[in-house]
Design a protein around this nucleic acid. Structure first.
Lengths: 341, 341
DNA sequence: TTGAAAGCGCTAACAA
DNA sequence: TTGTTAGCGCTTTCAA
């Protein structure tokens, strides 16, 4: 392995000068720099990032903790986060906790403030939240996708107004004339997505809908469980004309179930989700949903984390992401008399 | 930050002893170890992984390079790879190259043999392949999901017999009586998936099918382009009764297109893919596909990479993953007289 | 079984 | 503008 001092020797300078060339080029005379650069090229020198990290006390690595990357929402977030990190000169380490607090704790313990200059934690449940708070002393931690802007957590966070997302979904269904509505609330990979369902319920109430008529189900966060929940739902509440799911996976699962049961979407039943994952527009019928601008939030989160690392004073405790927006596609339509039994 | 020597001082031993306690516990007397452990607990000591990495010359970090994590195949691989890495005491750094050789080169240059003890590279095209070969001198690199077991690359790899996957798909369609077949070949995130299509073609030939009747299209690797390609296909070849796609995304896109065009799947047209991503069984109709055991291959790849790092002599240049298997679901059925124009 | 000491490769004062 | 020097926190011979 070629080291800094070998480069220095070859360029007939000292290690300090090489180091200077490698970062602030100002302090070194152009001819010297040239010589150093050439030596670097000739020797094929590559800096040892571990040594640099140790000397600098920072590793240029950010960690992203998430519960399960197989949930299609995460890859989209990761993609944007990795780009943002890369552009800012950081690496991104993905830490998958498998929904296991033990693993989350281990990761947090090992990397916060050591391997990673900062940690971005997504969709925390209460246990995870506690862990993060106690891990804050080790290094900067930021919560991404915090769902309750009205009650900031005890850690820095990037929040998204998910209650508003729920309200937008409610408004859309109401405007289409639906009154027999069912709601599927996902577990959000650890933390119940209740900001979304609360927002939805509040809007219904505001518009004078009797919440007693609202069929409610709590389910795991996946297409499969959306499918199962929808079947169960219609066995119990056959007169439902619209389904609100707190995320797109559930909504997609519901649509699949409806199709299997011979229900037309949206003619018999409308379905709306939240998030606007890729799949939402790739399905047929394409899913109506409330977009939360995953990319923008990911970028904002990375930028905020970096600021938290570099200038902690300048980073506000809570940053609010862009507002959710309704994306109308083909899975919702006006209420019609149901043709089936 | 609490350091090793602070722990040592508190336990009234030297740093070397603490270090010994932290790894090979044999060499130290139980009572001493006990004192050290207590000091660690009292001080809340956490080892500095950068320092350890520098001293040991290894970072316990593995890097996974892939072209675009938003492709649903990758998260499934990442999930399994991360688990395997974690269980083996390694971290996993995800490097997304955005299909950009520049970014790939930069990553390889920066991390191979430095930040990462080893690098797993997926789905390389030729450019990437060259890069990897020249980066091998920096540190262990292993190609995952090599598609051509019959021609091993110039690097260590874990291969999967994708030609066989194509052949299995062909056999299935032939057994169902299909003769008017179309083939959608994906670009595989950089490297054309031609092992799959070659295997498919070879099987057809073997069974005496005239390849001239095989409509062939090359497309980008996504649901959207599968959709578009399928529409285009039927405009030109309306008599096709079965579609083979070299991966599930294309197959899923094709099904969506068929549904939109009013074609029943599988009654009018059968569709088969390769991979068996999660989505394949979550769709309606559920997709018939050839499973390549992503999880097992990911695990095998991580294990192989670790062996390549620890005992390079014991790691064979090419390891063959489990054989692909046909998974029959609802998107394929016997050929029937087509009812449409 | 424990301690002493050197060093991993780089950075960052400070001095020249 | 360049060199000297002293670490960063840990591991690892080697000696005691």
């Amino acid at each position: 392995m070629v080291t800094l001092s070998e480069v220095a020797r070859r360029a007939r300078v000292t290690a300090a000068t090489v180091s200077n060339v490698l970062r602030n080029r100002e302090k070194v005379r152009p001819e010297t720099a040239e010589r150093v650069l050439q030596a670097i090229a000739e020797l094929g020198y590559r800096p040892n990032l571990n040594a640099r990290a140790l000397a600098q006390g920072r590793s240029s690595t950010l960690a992203l903790m998430l519960s399960n990357i197989a949930n299609p929402f995460y890859p989209e977030f990761v993609l944007a986060a990795e780009r943002a990190a890369r552009k800012a000169g950081h690496f991104l380490m993905v830490c998958n906790t498998d929904d296991d607090a033990q693993i989350g704790r281990a990761y947090l313990n090992q990397i916060a403030g050591t391997f990673a200059d900062g940690v971005l934690v997504m969709n925390t449940d209460i246990a995870m939240n506690e862990l993060c708070i106690s891990a804050m002393q080790n290094g900067p931690i930021l919560l991404a996708m915090w769902e309750h802007p009205e009650k900031p957590p005890a850690l820095p966070c990037v929040a998204v107004d998910f209650a508003r997302a729920g309200a937008l979904a409610a408004q859309h269904l109401l405007e289409l004339g639906h009154r027999n509505i069912a709601m599927l609330t996902g577990d959000g990979c650890g933390g119940l997505q209740d900001a979304r369902s609360d927002g939805f319920r509040a809007k219904l109430l505001e518009e004078g809908v009797d919440l007693a008529t609202l069929a409610q189900l709590q389910v795991r966060d996946s297409i499969d469980s959306g499918y199962a929940a929808c079947q169960q739902l219609f066995a119990q509440h056959p007169r439902v004309t619209a389904i609100f799911a707190t995320n797109d996976l559930l909504a997609i699962g519901a649509i699949q179930a409806l199709v299997s049961m011979g229900c037309a979407v949206p003619d018999d039943v409308s379905v709306i989700g939240i998030t606007d994952i890729q799949l939402a527009h790739q399905m047929r019928p394409a899913l109506t949903t409330v977009a939360i601008q995953t990319e923008a939030v990911a970028e904002l989160s990375i930028r905020s984390l970096i600021r938290l690392i570099d200038e902690p004073d300048k980073q506000p405790p809570m940053v609010l992401g862009p507002p959710p927006e309704l994306v109308t596609r083909m899975s919702t339509g006006p209420r019609r008399r149901r043709a089936r039994g």
